[in-house]
Amino acid sequence: MAGETNDSWLVRHEFLLRRLHSLSGLIPVGAFMIVHLLTNSSVQNGPGAFQKNVYLIHSLDALLPLVEWVFIFIPIFFHGIFGIVIIAGGLPNTSSYPNASNIRYVLQRVTGVLAFLFIVWHVFHMHGWIHADWWIDGVAKNLGGAQFKPYNAASTAGLALQSFVVIVAYVVGVLACVFHLANGIWTMGITWGAWTSPAAQRRANAVCTVFGVGLAVIGLAALQGMWAQGRGEALEEAIRIEDQQYNAAVQAGILKPNEEKRAQPSEAEPGREASVDQASARSPR
């Protein structure tokens, strides 16, 4: 309970911060998530299709970390951490008032926390957060992080999802993110005044529900697709295709060779022969 006469910076800029929080949920965080899930779901068209999309993203090259941090990670941290401040200011009461919108109020907060924890772990698990050798090799890998290799995109992602615990965490995490975004768009429309009347809010709710279900399907399809690429023959096939694409791209001069972004032989257990076969192709220029 505030009792001091000098308002904190947080209090003085409450309106701006809340609006930035609201905005950041959609742009860039939400927008990125949509693109991310759409990109990942392209794995349903085969590992090659997905790999092509990854190459497209990685064509940013040296700019990529900058883009990641400025447009994705920092907004996510802002949205997540300020979100926790907001949550701390509320007092859920669904047991007394079990209205649909009140339940969604609580779900928005629960999914927000889940989503934030999931994203922090997910980025670590796949991406590793920081591209520094001491971190990736010294810390991240030992803790099961940084498992995604962009130039073996589907296969490394798929492999990383094989544990039951991990796949369950991903399903929960993705659904939490999707709910949080879809419901967040609905509340955002009220916050910014896009839909004001009860009828408009009902219609917006229907649109957001359709959007959420659609995005959930896309997200789950991406997960299922990735997971399927990480086992049995599909994995071997995926690695083969990815390596083929890599070699072709390098040979065509489109891609700078970068072993860091490829699966290390030791990491991919089955189908090693295929990799060994291609080892010769990895000879330096």
Binding site: Y97, N102, G189, I190, Q201
Partner: peptide
């Protein structure tokens, strides 16, 4: 801005005042 859109206000209001409409209009 503090509103969290739980919309309990409108459901308990004995006079059925469209409070959430007012909130959205204030937001706009």
């Amino acid at each position: 801005q503090v509103c969290g859109n739980a919309q309990n206000c409108v459901s308990v209001c004995p006079k059925e005042i469209p409070l959430t409409t007012a909130i959205a209009q204030a937001g706009r």
